[in-house]
Design a protein around this nucleic acid. Structure first.
Lengths: 131, 131
DNA sequence: TTATTAATTTAGAATAATTCTAAAATGGAA
DNA sequence: TTCCATTTTAGAATTATTCTAAATTAATAA
């Protein structure tokens, strides 16, 4: 894939995403970028996200089903989702899985992604009130 | 939670979902159910899905980001997603994971869900043409 | 069986996220 | 600088989902 034009809009979006651990939605990206550069349109945010996704610079999370969230963390990683506060945390540690021979024969497995569910440290203490 | 009224619409939807391994979308459910019972509305499909979800009878997949897919498989299981045909297969086998002490200390982990990615048996042979 | 009623269904409107469109603007090569 | 392919833009279009309020109906009790 060729190089891309360095427009101020794209640089602002990339800057916002850099090292961002919040798995922002498109709306969040748009809002934040617009604050600094009011001349940015929502369509451009969508376009840029698309471009970054195609280049593998960010990836789309499949955790929330109503809004897409994006993850600029380039390291292979998993996620922990807190059942209480719904926050999503990156898990960069390698997690080994044990696959049976049968499974390995049935599918050509290239990779895996693990979503851990539970309660984060912040929410642990409030555990009693959870329904 | 109380019992629910057994309406013909609900029974048709439940019947369609029973043993369904296709992880259907709302649209697919609606279409199929409408064929047999033209007096069913989309809103009812949404309502019923919601009810079944709340009761834990079906679960919502977080694999596709544009349409929600539903899974009536009551057994705890993982998924295999074929990168070529995009089909989603249920993996009922238990997959063990190894979590570090540090991770176990940072989070109270209740469960996990694994998405395996790769190529299914059908698509394996066509592997060369994949981009 | 019949009457009652709370729950459910319905069509269509409303909302929300995303994609499309076509005209205007612009980065970067020549 | 000029040029032009790429990008941006505002707003319209599309799509999935939720809401609304009136009509229907399953299940209960008389």
């Amino acid at each position: 894939m060729e190089n891309f034009k360095q427009t101020s809009q794209r640089l602002a979006i990339i800057d916002y995403l850099k090292d961002n651990k919040n798995h922002p939605t498109v709306e969040e990206i748009f809002k934040s970028v617009k604050d600094k550069n009011p001349h940015v349109s929502l369509a451009t945010v969508y376009n840029t996200i698309d471009m970054l996704k195609k280049r593998g610079i960010i990836s789309e999370l499949t955790i929330n089903s109503t809004k897409r969230r994006y993850d600029p963390n380039p390291n292979y990683h998993h996620h922990f989702i807190c059942l209480s506060c719904k926050n999503v945390f990156d898990i960069e540690e390698k997690i080994n899985i044990t696959l049976s021979e049968e499974l390995k024969n049935s599918y050509k497995i290239h990779g895996y992604e693990i979503d851990l569910y539970g309660y984060c440290n912040n929410c642990k203490k409030e555990l009693s009130g959870i329904d």
